[in-house]
Amino acid sequence: MLELATFSLLNGIVYGLLLFMLTSGLTLIFSMMGVLNFAHASVFMLGAYLSYQVGLWVGFWPALVIAPLLCGLVGAGIERYGLRYVHKSGHVAEILFTFGLSYLIEELVTMIWGRNAVANNVPAAVDFPLFTLFGSTFPAYKGLMMVISVSMLVFLWLALKRTRMGLVIQAALSHPSMASALGHDVPGVFMLVFAIGSGLAGLAGVIGGFMLLTQPTLAHAVGPIVFVIVVVGGLGSLAGAFIASMLIGILQTFAVAIDYSLVDLLRALGFVITRSTPSYEFLSIKVATVAPTVPYLLLVLFLIVRPRGFLGKRDV
């Protein structure tokens, strides 16, 4: 029991950090530009493919740097030649534009790397057990992922709150015309923010690529959950996203371990439940079965109780 609890906690933290890694770039873009980037998960996927490809040529460690940079470039291009023009038509048009991009990127990836998963295996450099606990091993690449995820949090926090660049970014967002009058390149700042956000997605993709499966449906698989975290954490709040990621990761992992259903609960309370009880089918669903839908349940819960999420300051 202790063993299962320890592992559930550990797995929960690992999964939570993976989720945070996925969402941090999105949160950055959203809090800075107000753009909900539907193509974020697609850029994440692109990062996975690029790191695989670059890794084949020059090895894993250089790829860890190069792939995110390439993704950042792609992001800059998307902002410079697409979003900037769509911006005029409002937020809905922006969302739709990135939504369309997500279709495009998926097909482009198919066009280049084919439909099947590519053999993006765990790089030898990080493919060894880090430690052993109760007879189960903990792989090194998960450790690497945790380090990267936490450094993303620190980097973003410092960059925004403690650097001059961060101040300019914040100024350009709240008072674009004033910042522009003071000689700051506001469109340039927007492009930079989008590029950094995309670069972070790319970095997440490098790790996520071999943890999950590098195939054209990858973006679709992680897409929805990313948005749930953004909502639950509070739109645009970095710390909120972090807390939400951890909460969802841990909750979901623990839920998997629970083999009880409403039937068991009602029986424990003294009710008589049989197969012929109305909605038996519904009552008999185990918590473990529902586990992967926990994020969405949480979403609905927050919607009713606290629509602005954990740490959101504004409603949109």
């Binding site: 937020h91 809905v92 909502v231 979403l299 919607l303 409603d315 949109v316």
Partner: peptide
């Protein structure tokens, strides 16, 4: 409405 609704 808006983005929140879209996400919900």
């Amino acid at each position: 409405a808006g983005t929140i609704f879209a996400l919900i």
